Structures are given as C-alpha cells and as structure tokens.
Amino acid sequence: MSEKKQNDNGFPNISRGLAEVLFDTTKISKIDGEEGKLLYRGISINELVEKSCFEETAYLLIYGTLPTQSQLDTFISFLARENDLPRQILDIIFTLKEAHPTEVLRTAISALGAMNREKSISNSNDFRKHAMSLMAKVPNIISAHLSFRENKKYSPAPMKLSFAANFYYLLTGQIPTKQEEKIIDKLLILHADHGSNASSFATRVAISTESDIYAALTSAISTFAGARHGGAIERVMTMINEISEPGNASSYVKRKQEMNQPVMGFGHRVYKTEDPRAFHIRKIAQSISYKNKEDNNYKILEALVDAMEPYINKGVNINVDFYASIIYHSLGLPKDLYVSIFATGRMPGWVAQAQEQFENNILIRPLLHYIGENNVEYLNIEHRNTIVGEQI
C-alpha cells in the first residue's frame, strides 16, 4: 500500500470505498484473502466449526480466549437469564408485525436503548454485559415478530436448550433433531465475525463518537441489511427461483454479464479465492439437500458455479451467501428471515468490534477530496434564471 499522498499527476491518492486502507489494528479476526483463510482470535475457522459450539466461539470473540468449562457455563447461564423481552418491546414488535424482520430487529434494539437508563458506561466489564444482554435478546425479537405476523401467541423456548437449538425452536416451534441443531450451530459460528466489513465498520464509527452500544448495534444491523452486504443472502434465493432449473444457469449468467449485473453469491472485496466459510456451508447444503430430497436448488447452484468458471479463475469466487440460503430454505424458514438469522450469528463479532474500539478509542473521521467549483458568487434569488435539477 502506497504511502504517497499524491499520485504522479499531483492528484491526491484516493481509495474509494476505503479499499485496502488500514485504519487500525485488531486482535479479533484475521482474514487472508489470498490463501482463503479466516482466524478468530488466532484459531482457524476450520477448527472452530468442527470442534466448538456457538456459545464457546462467541465467548472467544468477546473475551479473547477460549473459556474453561466453568466460564462457559456462566456465560451460557447469563445469555439464558438475559433473553426475556420487556412488555413495551413486545408491544412495539406487534405494532410493526407487517414490517421486514430486519427492520423490526433494528427498531427493537434501538428501543431497548431508549428504555435503558444506565447506558452511560465507563468500564469494559459493564460495556460487555450490556452488549451480551442485547445479543441474548436477538433470537426472541425475531421469534416474537414471526409469531405476531402469523397471528400466533409468542412463547419462549420451554426448556433448557443450546443457543442453536433454542433459536431453531423459536423459529419453527419444534425441538430440533441433533443434525438440525448442529447445522444451525455451525452456521452461527461461520457468521460470527469477519473483520472490518461494512457493518463492523459502522459499529466502530458509532462507538468512536462515544455513542452507546445500542446505537452501535442499531447502526450495524441497518448497514448489514443492505443488498451489497448481508441482504445479499435473500437475493440468492430469489435468483434460484428465477433460474428454476439447472439447465438455465448458463443462459442466466450470460444475460447478467451482458447487462453488466452481478450474479448473486459471487465475489468478495477481500477474498481472491474461495471464501473459507463457503467451503463448510457448501458441504452442509449438499448434505441437507439430498437428505431432504430437495436437490434441485443445490444443482442450480452447482450449475452456476460451472457457468461462472471463467470468472472464478479470475478471482470472482463464491462467497458466504451462496449456499446458506438453500440451507435455510431446506429447514423451512421464510426467506425474509435469512438476513436476521445471519445477523444473530454476527452479534458476537459486532460486540467484540465495539468493545475493541471502546477500549482503545479514537474518533474515526476519514476525509473527502473536494472536486466541486470554487469561489462561486452568491446570486440573489431574483437573478437566478438557470434551473438545475428537477422541480420538487
């Protein structure tokens, strides 16, 4: 990365989208885009997804080290104790029952902040507790909204379950099988953090201004919902439905290229090879698709991979969104819940990013290079004849 402030033409060096800009240091996640590696606190995602559970991975991200059994038990108990929703929040969710689930999640978290009279936090321990309390409530917010819009009574999980099993129950009303529980658990781990992506950056910007954790996580979810971030996962399922058959994949890719439009689920700002998360999600998608005898969607995605091979060879590879959507579909979950489910997994990462910023804070304030006119004379209104832009 160049240290020069100007290029050879005397024009300032500008990294649009802050591409490849290092704005701080971190101990949370390491992403190797060339090798396709992802580490949480130094531990490979490949090890965590096979050996860990979501609660343990969340603890690792938030506290910086793997827990002892006693520490893990205490952490799990805290999440279980903090997941209840105040009556006022349930009323807000009911009022917004026709809204998109991600909008409801964003609004509920903001409202929890408005209700909290102890938002002013001066130490890391209190900061962490407030953040983890919010994380615990997210599955119940999503579940309450799902219940209300289906005109059902909202009821939390009836027994002590793992985070993944509890989440599945809240979404479906059924206790998951061991396989279903493991699938949700692995997906939550794979979604847990990914460096300074757009939503994590938004989290850090909010904390850098000394806003509270509620504002930071509201910013994160608002940013995450965008179609070029977490919102892409819904569009993959829309794409699959549009293609409808594996044999249509090649013509679909050709049409998209002719229109200069992206094929959803391909390409990543950081990875120049296959996203390591996608490797694991692909295995899950294949297994669950064939087990449930719903392999058409999986075959469509594989046909897309074949059709995209020339672009894959140039570094436009599959990303984390590509296969995740058909897993959620196979589990019988509504398409508009996919972003919120992904966000549930990302919560510990956002919490860790917020806390790291909180503990070593500096205001994040990039610059814009002005390219407009200079020294323009102010004209009184009676002398303005040229209409610029559209009339209101």
Rank of each mutant, 00 (worst) to 15 (best):
N197W: 05
I14N: 08
G33W: 01
R106V: 09
F201G: 07
I281C: 00
I62D: 04
A114K: 01
V270M: 11
Y214T: 08
A215F: 06
V263F: 04
E234M: 14
I362K: 15
S29F: 00
P334H: 03
K299T: 04
F342H: 05
T238A: 08
G33Q: 09
K314S: 09
E20M: 11
I184V: 12
S52Q: 02
L85P: 09
S70V: 10
P176A: 00
L187P: 14
F94E: 08
T57F: 03
A324P: 08
G315N: 08
N116Y: 03
I300V: 08
N317Q: 05
S208D: 02
S200L: 04
K335A: 04
K291S: 14
L61K: 07
I121W: 10
H194Y: 08
K4G: 01
K178V: 12
N125A: 13
L367Q: 13
N140E: 01
S250Y: 12
R228P: 01
E242H: 12
S52C: 02
Q391Y: 11
G42R: 12
D24Q: 14
T107G: 01
I31L: 12
M135L: 15
Y271M: 06
I43H: 06
L61T: 05
N9R: 10
E390M: 12
L146A: 13
A352C: 12
L72C: 12
L39P: 00
S133A: 15
E150S: 01
S44D: 07
G64Q: 11
I183G: 07
D24S: 15
I189R: 08
I221F: 01
N46K: 15
D321F: 04
H329M: 10
I243K: 03
S251D: 07
K186T: 09
S2M: 03
H145V: 00
D295E: 14
K97R: 10
A225I: 02
L96H: 05
A354R: 03
Y323N: 03
L161P: 04
G33D: 10
I288W: 05
I243T: 08
M347I: 02
K283L: 06
L60A: 08
L146S: 02
N297L: 05
G64V: 10
K27W: 00
P262I: 11
I28P: 04
E56Q: 13
A324G: 10
K153D: 13
E274P: 00
A232R: 05
T273W: 07
V49Y: 01
D185W: 00
E20S: 15
N248R: 12
A131V: 10
I109S: 04
D73K: 15
A136L: 03
N297W: 05
E302S: 11
A354F: 11
Q261I: 03
S29L: 01
I121C: 14
A19C: 13
F358N: 09
F342Y: 00
N125H: 08
K97M: 04
E382K: 10
L363K: 14
K152V: 06
F266K: 11
D126E: 15
E103L: 09
T107I: 06
I364A: 06
A136K: 05
H145T: 03
L18N: 07
S155D: 10
L333C: 07
